[in-house]
Write a protein that binds this DNA or RNA. Structure first.
Lengths: 221, 221
DNA sequence: TTTTGTATAATTGTATACACTTATACAATA
DNA sequence: TATTGTATAAGTGTATACAATTATACAAAA
């Protein structure tokens, strides 16, 4: 899928509109006209149509037949709900990873953590972007290691969702450090083949992120 | 979304291909040519393309740029994984429903159960289709009652997925009866505003379906 | 003023045309 | 024979054309 998304126009348009919705450029109930967007991006209506149909499936856009496409948007409650769901599923993911992970994947996780720790030790201060990318890599590797196509799919979707939507929000240095420590603990539990522990740690890891989120005004409702 | 799916050609083509993959007409790695399918359904390539792009997002089709679309298919393990995930999320759904459900929704759930019980009492034997439809309605109402757009979306997707894929498989009369009893228990817990109980019951409800699945050869791996 | 009807414009839905990429067949060459 | 090159065919990617539907403006009627 990722392959396709980069190579085709339709795929790029899809990603672009997706981001513009999640980062707030297009606001709730905005009408998305095929022609307008097409001109804006310098493409014809066809790839735009494809993109809008895909976005509808993701729930970011509502299409009314013969009328148009409208931004559904994503509320703070939506984000919060995603985290609640993720906290359960990331736990499940870690538990399954204990049974399915390969040595190569263990090495990759280790490497990701090492790189993260290195970033945080830099005298010149850490790059928030780099840290976010490494965090994404860690979770992505975990999804892969679960050995479940379905679980990987749904978790990757959610992760991508909130990552884009929260790009503006701040992650404190303190939280970043703790997050990496938690990643290391999860990895250790998986190495030890302790499924229970891995599940609990992964679970709590997401809940800690949620606590941080709460401070920034994301509430349950 | 449902509105659109019925009214537009693209939507119908999407549903059609989706079913043909899930019910096994198109098998794993089959190539889906836009022209061929278009002719088969009497439409042009455009709606077919839209459908294939959407199916890719759902994970049922893999698109290789400039090459074509191939059926990804859905394995027994996939179905099993979906049930594991569902058992957690249906539990969460029931817990949330306790806090968000309206009186009207309670009535609708009650009605659905009554209709199910009526079906099972019929002298002429029960209609499996009717029972399946009522089961779908019960769960759909629960998703709505959770008050979470996100949870509803992901659960509805999964439910639809397995429902279509398992249409061939048999549901015993015994299992159908027990299922309805379990629905009633869940409803009672929600009425009593007992979130813990509702969660546990909904959780177990799905696990019971899984036990039934196991008998029919669906295994963990 | 409010409502209704109608012509026009704007937008979506679908089909088709053309460009580009990839697959296939087959000949030329080693 | 095995390999490579090339022409042809087939298929996808995108743009455009046309049809169908819906929105808008404005006049006519109550």
């Amino acid at each position: 899928m990722e392959e396709y998304q980069d190579h085709s126009l339709g795929g790029r348009v899809f990603q672009r509109i997706r981001e513009d919705i999640l980062n707030g450029k297009y606001k709730e109930n905005d009408e998305l006209r095929e022609n307008t967007i097409g001109k804006e991006l310098g493409v014809s209506r066809t790839p735009v149509r494809e993109a809008l149909r895909q976005l509808e499936l993701e729930g970011l856009v509502t299409i009314i037949p013969n009328r148009g496409a409208y931004v559904t948007g994503i509320s703070h409650k939506d984000i919060w709900d995603i985290y609640v769901i993720r906290s359960m599923l990331e736990g499940l993911c870690a538990r399954w990873a204990v049974e399915h992970i390969t040595d190569a994947q263990l090495d990759e996780l280790e490497e990701t953590i090492l790189l993260s720790e290195f970033q945080m030790k830099k005298e010149s201060g850490f790059s928030a972007e780099q840290i976010a990318a490494l965090d994404g890599r860690f979770h992505s590797l975990m999804y892969e290691a679960s050995g479940s196509r379905i679980l990987r799919h749904v978790l990757a979707d959610f992760h991508n969702y909130v990552q884009t939507a929260r790009r503006s929000s701040v992650v404190s240095e303190d939280r970043a450090r703790k997050s990496i420590r938690e990643h290391r603990q999860i990895l250790r539990a998986i190495r030890d083949r302790d499924g229970e522990m891995a599940e609990q740690l992964a679970n709590e890891h997401i809940m800690h992120v949620m606590q941080n989120l709460k401070k920034q005004g994301y509430e349950q409702e």
